[in-house]
Simulated assay, not measured.
Amino acid sequence: MGSPRRHSTSRSLGGKAVDRVTASIQDSAGTNNADFSTPPDGQSGHMRRYLFTSSNPNRDGALENDVPAHENTQTAWVETAGGMGESWSDAMADWTEKTSAAVPDDVMGQYIINSPAGIRTHPYSTSSTVNPLTYASVGTLNKVHNIGEVWANLLHNVYAALIGQWGWSPDSRTNPDGTVGNIVYMRLFIDSLPLQPCNPNFLTACNAWLQADVNRYNGTNRCLLWKTFASKGLGVNAANNADIPSDC
């Protein structure tokens, strides 16, 4: 099925035209996966969602919102940045699942594999017992999804911190100018993406979040962000430490 999304018809406004996203469901090219191809601007991206075969009957990857939400956030990433791409996508899917001010653990892909454990190694959680991943964990990981879990869990904790500071609203998808935590989070999420360099890593992604907060909120959330990053080993100078700026 198609999912039309057109960019500006004028290059001066930021992109080439007629490059709507296309999508297919129960795609026969594979099983137990989903993917998103991202060609250059002006060419359509394409999402494929496959059947998952760990249960009988097979389960459709289009029927669990985690899957299309994740794939819709995909862009072109490589190496450690490949892990970053997977993590941003998981974090977006996590955000779409929130229906109240509560920040429960988030488990990806429970339906598609018919398992409460889901498709990641840990739930995304504010508990370091439930999810012990930190920046130091990246050095032991070599698969993009596993690397991605580290940053996605950190963003889960950023979300929780912003909800704790500014509260939650059910109109976050229709009121982008709101000042509550779930709206602030998504504003910073989107704003930080283009502030990263090509092939970003954890450090440049952190810097992008901090700069996004300066740009939109005059640095109001600076210390909150630093404390959350540092709690997962991305402190000042990011030497796997929990150091925060002296004025925080």
Rank of each mutant, 00 (worst) to 15 (best):
S55A: 14
N33C: 00
F36W: 08
S89G: 06
G45S: 11
V78H: 11
D60P: 03
E71W: 04
Q74T: 05
A34V: 06
Q74D: 06
A93M: 10
P57F: 05
M92S: 03
W88E: 05
A34T: 12
G82H: 07
P40L: 09
N65A: 15
V67H: 02
T75C: 08
F36L: 05
G61M: 09
A76D: 11
E64N: 06
P39L: 05
A69T: 08
D94V: 08
E71R: 01
Q74H: 13
R59N: 12
G83P: 06
R48I: 01
A34L: 10
E86Q: 07
L51T: 04
G85F: 03
V78F: 08
D66A: 13
G42D: 09
S44K: 03
S37E: 05
L63S: 14
N33E: 08
D90E: 08
T75Q: 13
D90A: 02
S55W: 00
S44Y: 03
N72S: 12
S87Y: 01
Q74I: 07
P68A: 02
A76T: 11
E64P: 02
D35T: 11
G82Y: 08
P68F: 01
E71H: 02
S37I: 02
N58M: 13
A91T: 05
N72D: 05
P40N: 04
G61K: 08
V78G: 12
L63V: 07
T53D: 14
R59K: 15
Q43H: 10
A62M: 07
E86R: 03
H70M: 02
A76W: 11
S37T: 14
N72V: 02
R59C: 07
D94Y: 06
Q74W: 03
D60H: 09
D35N: 15
T53E: 07
N56G: 04
P68K: 00
N72M: 12
M47V: 14
T73Y: 08
R59I: 13
G61D: 12
S55T: 15
A81Y: 04
T38P: 00
G42C: 01
D60S: 14
F52H: 04
V78D: 13
P39C: 03
D60W: 06
T75Y: 09
A34G: 13
T53G: 05
W77S: 10
W77T: 12
A62S: 13
G61P: 01
W95F: 15
S44A: 10
Q43F: 09
M47N: 04
W88T: 00
S54P: 06
A62G: 10
N72K: 01
T96A: 13
E71C: 01
W77Y: 14
D94E: 08
A93Y: 06
R48G: 05
Q43E: 12
G82L: 07
N58S: 11
T38N: 15
Q74V: 09
D35F: 15
G85W: 10
P39G: 02
L51Y: 07
F52L: 00
N65Q: 14
L63T: 14
A81S: 15
T80N: 15
A81W: 00
G83Y: 09
D66H: 12
A81F: 00
L63W: 01
A76P: 03
N33Y: 08
D60I: 09
T38E: 10
A81Q: 06
L51M: 15
L63D: 11
D66R: 04
N33F: 00
D35S: 10
